[in-house]
Simulated assay, not measured.
Amino acid sequence: MNPTPDSFEYWMEKIRLYWRNMAKPTADINSSLDDEEKLRWFIDIDRRHLNAIANKLPDKVNQQVLQEFIAILQEYKKLLQLQPPNYPLYKAEDLRDKIANVMEDIADVYCFMCTSDGKAGFDYKQANFYYHQAIQSYVENNSAETAKRCFKKIAQLRINYKINVDREIEHLFLTLESLSPHSLKYLETLINLAEIYFANGDNFEAEKCLLLTESKLKELGYTQFSLTEITNDSPILNKTQSRDFLEEYNSGEIAVKVRELYRRLYFSLSQIYREKAVQEAAKYLELVNRMNGDDKNKNPSEQMLNWLNSHFNL
Results as ranks from 00 to 15, higher is better:
Thr228Arg: 09
Asp244Val: 02
Trp19Gln: 08
Ala107Gln: 02
Ile72Tyr: 03
Phe204Lys: 13
Asp28Arg: 10
Tyr76Pro: 04
Asp117Gln: 02
Arg149Tyr: 03
Lys77Gln: 15
Arg259Ile: 05
Ser301Met: 07
Arg243Tyr: 13
Lys216Ala: 08
Leu285Pro: 01
Gln136Gly: 08
Leu269Val: 06
Leu187Lys: 04
Ile70Gly: 05
Ser310Asn: 08
Asp244Arg: 12
Gln156Pro: 03
Leu237Cys: 13
Leu80Gln: 13
Phe151Thr: 15
Met291Val: 07
Thr26Val: 10
Lys148Tyr: 05
Gly201Asp: 03
Thr26Ala: 09
Leu212Gln: 14
Leu305Trp: 06
Asp94Met: 11
Arg158Gln: 13
Lys296Ala: 15
Thr231Asn: 00
Leu187Pro: 05
Thr240Arg: 11
Gln224Arg: 11
Ser268His: 03
Phe245Met: 10
Ile45Lys: 01
Arg96Gln: 14
Met1Ser: 12
His49Ile: 00
Ala194His: 03
Leu193Asp: 05
Lys185Trp: 02
Thr213Gly: 05
Tyr273Asp: 05
Cys111Leu: 08
Leu80Cys: 06
Thr223Arg: 04
Trp19Pro: 00
Tyr138Lys: 09
Asn309Glu: 12
Glu302Arg: 11
Leu190Asp: 07
Leu50His: 12
Leu193Gly: 05
Met304Tyr: 01
Tyr18Ser: 07
Lys208Arg: 09
Asn30Pro: 04
Asn51Glu: 14
His132Pro: 00
Ala120Lys: 09
Val288Lys: 03
Met291Glu: 06
Arg96Thr: 13
Ile163Thr: 11
Asn292His: 03
Thr115Asp: 14
Asp108Cys: 10
Tyr110Val: 08
Glu168Asn: 13
Thr175Gly: 01
Ala23Cys: 08
Asp6Asn: 14
Pro25Trp: 07
Asn160Val: 06
Lys56Asp: 13
Leu172Ser: 02
Arg158Trp: 00
Phe69Glu: 13
Glu68Tyr: 05
Leu265Ala: 06
Tyr249Cys: 03
Ile196Cys: 07
Ile15Thr: 10
Arg274Asn: 09
Lys125Thr: 00
His132Ile: 11
Arg243Ala: 14
Ile29Cys: 10
Ser183Cys: 06
Leu57Pro: 01
Glu188His: 06
